[in-house]
Amino acid sequence: MHNMILSNTEEVPGRRIVEFYGVATGSTVRAKHFGRDFMASLKNIVGGELKGYTELLQEARQEATERMVQQAHSMGANAVVNVRYSTSSVAQGAAELFAYGTAVKVE
């Protein structure tokens, strides 16, 4: 992963933005894994955390973020500010994890 500063505030705290490059985005669509699904349905009886899904979504979000960083890097940015995440179910059992933000250059 490139050395990129990410923040969900409008600027990188403590740094000054010198250039704006535009919106950088990254996304990934994931389907649930059968094994995890089976474990999750067992876990559904006693309730609580479904660890398989927690990890699945965390990994997917990580990948979406990396793609966003990749794009910001190719724009020449060294930071992405105002990062937002969104999750949407695109089909039965599949979800899109989307990350976007503004690619900028900070001092």
């Binding site: 559904n44 309730g47 609580g48 955390e49 927690t54 979504l57 965390q58 979000r61």
Partner: peptide, 10 residues
């Protein structure tokens, strides 16, 4: 960030 997926018990 931190995330968690939870469900209700039966």
């Amino acid at each position: 960030s931190g995330n968690v997926v939870v469900s209700l018990d039966y």
